[in-house]
Design a protein around this nucleic acid. Structure first.
Lengths: 335, 335
DNA sequence: GTGAAAGCGCTAACAA
DNA sequence: TTGTTAGCGCTTTCAC
């Protein structure tokens, strides 16, 4: 099938391409009658404008980028849902990029956006991300960027996230209320602000309850499941093992449960477990899992909405628009 | 920061834009010395070519589209991983679109691709998709399309999927081997070929074991969790309830487990449960879940690889390249 | 080995 | 109200 463009339409209608273009965009300069004719033919021939010609000319691409560490995580999957919902409603397209927690990849991806490929970026930084120069560079090219979930405090833009400090606090306090005393915090990154904040909340709760730093256990996990399994098993296979565990990230849950099973530790009797998680299956785990659940869809939705607002009025100050959503504690049988 | 383009480079180097363009693309027409100079300046000024200008000119966008019903499903999430891996290695960009099981949305999305926005499409059809005209139209515009997982048999192109018939058969046979006799099949769509095939496999196994059609239970589920909960509870809350359940799709697992809990039916004693699922948490459910697991990453990877092959040689016949991957049965405590 | 020129399909001044 | 023209930034003949 022949590809049909403005010129074809114009020729068949004995009009200029300019007129056709304006008619299709419902310009007030064009008579109703002409608009009718143009629209009729466009529909008949099933004309779809070439987006790249239009992008080139207008210097706007009607597409945004979503840059995240991974998709196989129910938080990010739900966040994408939230983002896609807004994008679809605004007629925007969404490009997706996975960093797999690599800072180098993240830099390379953002670098490319200097080209004008996207009108804006939604970013959740990788666990390795140690500085924000790549973000600053992008901003200096007038590409608006909104960070969500895994935010960077340093950068000047909208940040949409959970109230991480409180969430960490809430998790720890819940375990303490349940009578657990030696509580471990499983982190995925020393550098990630989100992880630090959750940890600070945990530490604060511990201190307020007069636990000594010697009774805190901070355990660094990684991207590597095998490694995490070993680390967690090691943590628990020990005279002075913790009796409570806070998994700061969903994927660590499986490792914790498996380690307990291998070591024949009973949850919640021997070890209480609470996870930051959006898993739909939390309620049907064995035992059902107490979670700190983030409003993932809403966070994605809010981040995207802010980005679109910044497209609509250029005077919109993204950095005055950060939002923090409360997480909710779902108490189940693992604590 | 000023946006820098070929013209800027050319001016600073006292060369023509044509020469600079060729130099950057490492054309043999250009002297090594010039290439050096050009590359040096391009790097120094951090030149990133405008992709839309290039797309417009070359009529190729270096981007593909992934059209799927949803992301919040571990099969699709993993499949995206597989797709993204190939795309990234080939320097391609990936646009993502969610149909939320709506045929109308799917049509609208594919329609837009006639514009040349993408070089190819990876599609997993919605549960509502009843005909393939939208796909045929796209193909008539020379946009290659590979269907994966939720394939359509009718269309002439590469189809990458699991061996669904065998998987359905395997699931049923496993339950039968375990001594279950009244086995229900939970479907998500009458029209989806993938669902029909799994169901046919189930029926075949039943017949081979001399169960009567009267002992088959086929249960239509939907997108709506509430509704599914009710339907499944109704199925099980009954004198003549099934003693075995095959969930043909991951998301139904939670409904089944919850229904059993509410009705105080014990898994696996009262009801055996097997699910098509890629959940990482299958092993730590209560009880751990017997699954038919699809090689999601590989399927995504294979689908994308085929698409890229068709870009590389236009003589490549996609419709001669369908692939079927075996699923694996993970026997756990729910059966 | 390099450059001039045309043009991808569209939009936006500016004329008419 | 419609048309002419220029040009977005790039690639690609085709001359030189």
């Amino acid at each position: 099938m022949e590809n049909i463009n403005l010129k074809t339409l114009a020729a068949q209608l004995h009009l200029s391409t300019a007129t056709v273009s304006k008619a299709l965009r419902d310009s007030h300069e064009i008579s109703d009658e002409t608009k009718q004719r143009v629209r009729a033919l466009a529909a008949a021939l099933n004309y779809i404008p070439n987006p790249y010609a239009s992008s080139l000319r207008k210097k706007s691409s009607k597409t945004i980028a979503v840059v995240i560490p991974e998709v196989a995580d129910s938080f990010f999957a739900e966040a994408i849902n939230g983002i896609e919902a807004v994008a679809q409603s605004k007629g925007y397209h969404v490009l997706i990029y996975l960093t797999h927690e690599s800072f180098e990849k993240e830099k390379a991806i953002l670098m490319d956006f200097q080209s004008g490929r996207v009108d804006g970026v939604l970013l959740s930084v990788s666990a390795e991300t140690v500085n924000t120069n790549h973000i600053l560079t992008l901003q200096s090219h007038q590409i608006p960027i909104v960070v969500f979930d895994r935010i960077c405090d340093e950068i000047k833009t909208a940040k949409v996230s959970t109230d991480d400090y409180n969430s960490g606090y809430k998790a720890a306090q819940h375990l303490i209320d349940r009578g657990y005393k030696k509580i471990a915090y499983l982190s995925i990154s020393k550098t990630l602000s989100i992880s630090r904040k959750r940890m600070n909340g945990y530490m604060q709760a511990m201190k307020e309850n007069n636990f000594l730093p010697a009774e805190f256990y901070i355990c660094e996990c990684t991207t590597d499941d095998e490694y995490n399994n070993a680390v967690i098993e090691n943590l628990l296979n020990n005279e002075n093992r913790p009796d409570g565990i806070i998994a700061s990230v969903e994927k660590l849950t499986t490792s914790v449960y498996s380690a307990c099973r291998r070591l024949q530790l009973k949850i919640p009797e021997d070890v209480g477990v609470i996870s930051f998680s959006n898993l739909k299956t939390a309620a049907i785990l064995n035992p059902s899992l107490t979670t700190i659940t983030q409003p993932a869809f809403d966070i994605g939705n809010a981040a995207a909405s802010l980005l679109f607002k910044s497209f609509e009025k250029k005077s919109f100050q993204l950095d005055a628009e950060s939002q923090s959503f409360p997480s909710v504690l779902h108490i189940r049988n693992s604590t």
